[in-house]
């Protein structure tokens, strides 16, 4: 279901599911502690190399692009914090709900809580997203 000018507070954003893949693990940067590589990440105290934050944002953006439609490219805003790592092959789900409706111009800015969670429900990225929808 796509966002409309009538979407009420509390309405959910359709979930976006996928499997994370650590495409940024690479060995072509000699001497660099790449947090996406297992060995380097373990030296820094992490369980293993983790998926790039940019990929998490890409997942969240997929949910928002499909939910808001073209207006997201012109009025979209996203503000998130990375709260825990996502690892290679983690099943992930992007979720969200509308929490506020703010009149803006000839439309309404729908402000949503959004988050990306791992299979066990641990939130990895949390924040808000919004865009202006018009009738």
């Amino acid at each position: 279901m796509r966002a409309t000018v009538d979407t009420p507070i509390g309405a959910p954003i359709p979930e976006w599911k996928g499997i994370a893949s650590n495409v940024h693990a690479r060995t072509d940067r000699e001497g660099e502690a790449n947090i996406h590589d297992d060995a380097a990440a373990q030296k820094l105290g992490f369980q293993r190399g983790f998926v790039a934050g940019g990929q998490s944002i890409a997942w969240i953006s997929r949910a928002l692009v499909h939910y808001f439609g073209p207006t997201y490219f012109q009025t979209g805003r996203l503000e998130v914090t990375y709260v825990s790592p996502v690892f290679d092959q983690d099943p992930i789900t992007v979720k969200g709900t509308v929490r506020e409706r703010i009149p803006e111009g000839d439309g309404v800015r729908l402000v949503c809580d959004v988050w990306l969670e791992r299979e066990d429900g641990t939130k990895a990225v949390v924040g808000t997203a919004s865009a202006v929808v018009r009738g």
Binding site: E32, G53, I57, R77, E79
Partner: peptide, 18 residues
């Protein structure tokens, strides 16, 4: 700049045109 140990903590993005 060295990219060693660089980890993102938050982002704020605004889109105005594709």
């Amino acid at each position: 700049f060295s990219m060693s140990g660089v980890i993102p903590t938050k982002t704020r993005q605004e889109y105005f045109a594709p």
